[in-house]
Write a protein that binds this DNA or RNA. Sequence first.
DNA 1: GCCGTTTTCGGCCCGACTGTTTTCAGTCG
Length: 610
Amino acid sequence: MCNCLFNIIKKMCYVNEKGNCFIKKELLVMDNNHIAQFFYKITEYLELKGENPFKIRAYSNAARIIESHTKDLSKITDIVELRKIKGIGESIAEKIVEINKTGKCSYLEELEKEIPKGLLDITTVPGIGPKKAAFLYKEKKIKSVDELKKYAEKGKLHDLKGFGEKTEENILKGIEVKDKFHGRMTIGQALPAAKEIINYLSKKLKIKQITEAGSLRRRREDIGDIDILASSDDNMPAKKIMDAFTASPFVKEVLAKGGTKSAIISHDDVQVDIRVVEKESFGAALQYFTGSKQHNIILRQYAEGLGFKVNEYGVFRLKDNKKVAGETEESVYKALGLPLIPVPIRETGEEIELALKGKLPKLVEKKDIRGDLHFHTVKSDGFNTIEEIVKDASAFGYEYIALTDHSQSLKVAHGVTEKDKLKQIETIRKLNEKNNKFKILAGAEVDILKYGDLDYPGNILKKLDIVVASVHSYFKFTRKEMTDRIIKAIKNPNVDIIAHPTGRLFGTRDEVEADWDEVFKAAAYYNTALEINSFPNRLDLKDIYCRRAKEFGVLFAISTDGHNTNQLEFIEYGINVAQRGWLTAKDIINTKSYSDLIKWLNRGQALQKL
DNA sequence: GCCGTTTTCGGCCCGACTGTTTTCAGTCG
C-alpha cells in the first residue's frame, strides 16, 4: 500500500485495545437509506438460511420502515425511542443503535461468515429463489453465478431432485436475461414504454379497461418491471388478450403464458407482466396489483379484523364468503370503511391508519400548478426562443413561466454574460407590457460557486424577478463543506429557490454529501424554496426528502428545468414526486396566482434575511 | 422478529404459473 493511502486510512480509523480497526465516529456517514441496507441484506441471508418466514418478513418490513421514515434515524441512539416506531422491536432497535454507533452490524457479519456472498447473486437469477440457491450449494457446492452457469451448460443439474431439463434451460436463459438488465429503469423510461403497449392492446382489441399497475402506477422514481392489468368479459375473453399480448410486436421473448397471466421480455430488454381479470373484479385486482406489498398486507390484516377477506377478485365477507365489493377500486376501500387512498402514497401502510382518522392530506395535483419556474431558452443551452416558450407554455395552460438561463460561469451550457442578462431582462419587460394574460418572470439559474457565493453580482440579481441557485461544480466536497456551501446560498437574500438540491443523476451521479436536515432547517428558516426538479433523470428533491423537508416547514417549487417546450409535460413527474412526498398545493409556490407569487418573491425585503 | 379490544403466546395476506411430480414446492408479485 502506498504511504499516501495508508496515511488517509490512518486518519480515518482508530484501533481499540483488542486491535480491531474502526472508522472514526465523526466520519460515519449514515442515513436512513444506509441503515435500511443492513436490514435488506439480513433479510436476504435469512431467506437463504430458510429461517422462519415471519422473522424474515419482520426484517424486510423494518428495512422498508427505516428507509421511508421521515425522521433521520441515524441520529437516534436510544432504544426506547426507536421502539416507539411500529414494526421496530427490541432486537431491531438494538441493531440500529449498534449501526449508528459503530457503522457495523455484528449480526450481519455473522451471517456473512456463515453463508457465501455469491449465493445472494444466484438468487438474482430469475427463477432461482433462496430455496433453490441453498439447495444447489448444499448438493453441488455452487456458490457463484459463473459456477451455476457452468453446471447448467454441462447438464449437471437435471439429475438433482426437483430439477429437470427445462429448469436447466431456464437457468441459462435467466442468467442471460440478468446480464442484459442494467438495474432498474427511471419512471421516465418505464411510463412511455408502458403507455405504448397499453395503447397498442386497447386499440387492437378495443379493451375497455386496461392500465398500468404496480410501482409504475404508484409512480416510484425507479421501476423494475412493467405491470399491466386488463379486464375481460364475454366479448373479450382473457385468452384473446393473452394471445395478442404474447404475439405483439414488442415481444422479444415469452417468459410465461397462462390463462390469465403472462410475462414477456421486450426488445428493450424490459420485463412486462400482464394480468387479466373479469370486469367485476377489475377494481379489486387494480387495488391488489398496484400495491405496495406492505400496503396490501396491512389492508388485508385490517380487513380480517372487520370480518372480511380481500384478494384480487374482491372483498368477501368471511362468515358466508359473499362478495361485497370489487368492480371499482373505490368500492374496495369503501367496503372497509376507508376513503380511496391516493395511489402515490400507498407504501408503508401508515396511510391506512391516517385514512381511518381522516387525516390524509389533499395532495397537490396537475391542475394546481400555474406555471413553471425553471426553464431555459436558446440564450443558454435551451432549444426555444422566448416567443416560442410563451406560446407553448400558454397553450399548456400556464399563467406564467420563469426563464432561467444559466449564469456566466457555466461555459458548457453557454452561460449568459452580465451584459446579455441585462438585455434579456429588458426584452422580457417589453414582452410583458404587451401581454396581460401570460406573464414571463425574468430569472436565472445561477451557479453556486465553490464557497457558496453566486455567479452574478448583487446588482444583477436584484434586477431579476426570480433567482434559482444551483450547484454545478465541486460535487465531491465533504459533507460539512457542501452543507455550508448550500446553506450560504439559502441565506443569500437574492435567492428564491435552490434547484436540484442533491445534484443526483440516475445512473450517472450520486447525490452530493450534505447534512440534509441542516439544509432543510435553513431553507425553512430563511424562507428559501427547494426545487422538485421534474426532469426524469433527476427527480430531485426525491419523495422521501420532500416529506422530511415539509416537516421542517420548507416550501417547494415543482419545475421542469426544461430545455425544449415538449419537456413542459415533464412536470407530471415532479408532481408525482411531490405527491409521494405527501405535499399539498399550499406547500408549492408555483400553485400561487401570479400576483401572489410576486408577493412571495418580494418577501426577502420584508424578512430582512440574515 | 413483531404485535396485542384475543397482551407475554400464537398468529402473521393471498393467489397464479411453472416444472416437476401425480399433489405440490418454489418463485413471483
